[in-house]
Structures are given as C-alpha cells and as structure tokens.
Amino acid sequence: MDILKEKESGSLSEECDEALIIFHHRQCTDIQLRKIVQLEDDSIFFDALLRIRRIGRIESRLHALMLLRKLFKVVDPAQITGIKDELFEETVRILKDNGVSLQTIKASLELVTEIIRWGRNRIKAAESGMVSVLIELLIDNSDRRVCELMLVALEQICWCAEGRAKFLEHAAGLATVSKKVLRVSHVASDRAVRILFLICRFSSSYRVLQEMLEVGVVSKLCLVIQVDCSETTKERVKQILNLNSRLWKEASCIPAHLLSSYPSL
C-alpha cells in the first residue's frame, strides 16, 4: 500500500506500476478488499488511486480505475457518499482526452454509474461539467455500450435539479438524447426516454416544450408508441405525451402518421 501512496507529484514509479498490475490480476475476495481499506487510512488510499488516474501511464490509469470499482463495491455506503469532487473532475478530464482508449472510457463510465446515485454525488457530477461532456460525446459516438453508459449517467444526474439545469443549458441536449431513442439498443432507448421524462416532469417550461417540438423529440416519442419496444418504455412515453398534450397534440410540425398515435387522455 505504501508504494501506491509514495508519490505526491510527478510521474509514478515503476514499483507503483507493478503494484497496480499485481492488484489488477490478483483475484481478491470481497473480505480481502474490505481489509485492505480498513487497514489503511482509506482517504489517503483513495486519493492515491485518484492521483494515479491523473498522472499515471495509460495502463496504470486503467488498473487504478478497475481497482476503484472493486473497492467501491465492498466499502461502506458512507464512504461512497463522501467521495471527493476530484473523482468526477478526473472523469471529465478522461472523457475529454482524445488519446484515451475506449476501454478506459468504458471503465470510467462504469465507475461513475455505480457510485453516482449515492448521497450528493449527482450534484457533484453536475457541477464537474460532466453533463456537457457526455452530451458532446453522445453526438458522434457509435459504440453501443458507451452510449448506454453515458445515457445511464445522464439519467442519474438529471434526477437532481442541478443536473437538469446543466442538461438544458446545452443547446444540443434534447436533440442528441432523442436521436439515441430506437437507434442504439433497448437499454439506450429506455434511458433516453427516462431523461426526457425527468425534464418534462420536473423542469419543463414553454421554451423547453417548444424546443422539443422543433427538434423532433415529440415526433420520436410518437414513433416509439408504434414500434416494438418495451412496454415500460411505451408507458413512460405516454406519460410524457399526456403531460403536455395541450401544447403538442395539435402541433402542425408532427407528421400525421405519427400524430395519429398520440394517446388519448
């Protein structure tokens, strides 16, 4: 453990890299992982792993991410709720780094989606600038799993008012999320619809609802009712459409063949 904590700045030592490789390949049980954290000052230990994410080599950063995921699965929830803002800030840096591997991006997103629902972590993620980065990456990303993870993260962040505000600040937020509906997977469609539901349920305004008409969100929602997808997703879509039927139901910009599927109140 001391090897992981020895470097406060600059590049990491070869011993640190080797220690991470050993940890990565060693099949530790949950009990062993808990003991690792309990025997150490856990804040120092987690800080060391976060520092490795920032300044370590590509392979070391990936190993640190995977070790963090393993540890967060076994630690007390109080430790997860007390995560420092730095974790989310470092995740944003990784996502913005064009030189990062797809595997590292996936590992970062998997870590975030597992811890974001605890305590104030949604707010920390929103304040880190993560919403804007996720939307930008969603625009051109075609990897199914990455898209799913980004939509899961966005949905979790949108459960807080700060997250929804950041989402609506982005000019392409609504259009980008709606375009992923029916284009990626059932999981992605479900999460995208959940995001739109949260916006309509808790943060709607005339401007927002009008934008949803103009960028094709409402037409896409009407299409969801007509095609083969989960009943849960369809029911959530119907709730969205019913919530805003006064403004949307007679809209001239919705094609007639889609408007015909608009649910009756």
Rank of each mutant, 00 (worst) to 15 (best):
M130E: 02
A161R: 14
I157R: 01
S178H: 04
V131T: 07
E169G: 09
L138K: 01
V146Y: 05
R145A: 09
A161P: 12
G173L: 10
T176C: 12
S189F: 00
K179D: 10
R145C: 04
L168D: 06
L196K: 03
D140Q: 15
S128A: 11
E162W: 09
V131C: 07
D140K: 15
K180D: 00
V193C: 11
L138S: 03
G173S: 15
S178D: 02
E155H: 13
R144M: 08
C147A: 09
C160W: 01
A153V: 03
T176S: 12
L151K: 06
V146N: 05
E136H: 11
V152P: 00
L138P: 02
F197A: 08
I157A: 05
I157H: 05
L168P: 07
V193P: 05
E148N: 10
A161E: 15
Q156C: 11
V131M: 06
C147P: 00
V184M: 08
L182G: 01
E136R: 10
Q156V: 12
V177D: 00
A175F: 04
I139G: 01
R164T: 03
R183W: 14
A188C: 08
I157C: 09
A192T: 00
C147F: 05
A172T: 13
R183F: 13
R164S: 05
I135Q: 02
A172G: 07
E127S: 13
L134I: 06
F197T: 05
Q156E: 14
H186R: 13
M150Y: 03
R164I: 00
I157V: 15
L174A: 07
E127L: 15
G173N: 07
M150A: 08
L138F: 02
E127A: 13
G129T: 01
E162H: 11
L134F: 07
C147I: 10
L137V: 12
K180Q: 07
W159Q: 14
E136N: 13
L151R: 05
W159S: 11
E169A: 12
V146S: 04
A165N: 14
C160Y: 00
D143K: 11
E127D: 12
G173A: 15
E155C: 14
R164Y: 07
E148L: 09
S142N: 14
H186C: 04
L196E: 02
V193F: 06
S128H: 02
L182S: 05
K166R: 14
D143A: 11
E127V: 12
A161T: 15
R194G: 02
I135L: 12
R194C: 08
E162C: 14
L168W: 12
E155M: 13
S185T: 02
A188V: 01
V181N: 03
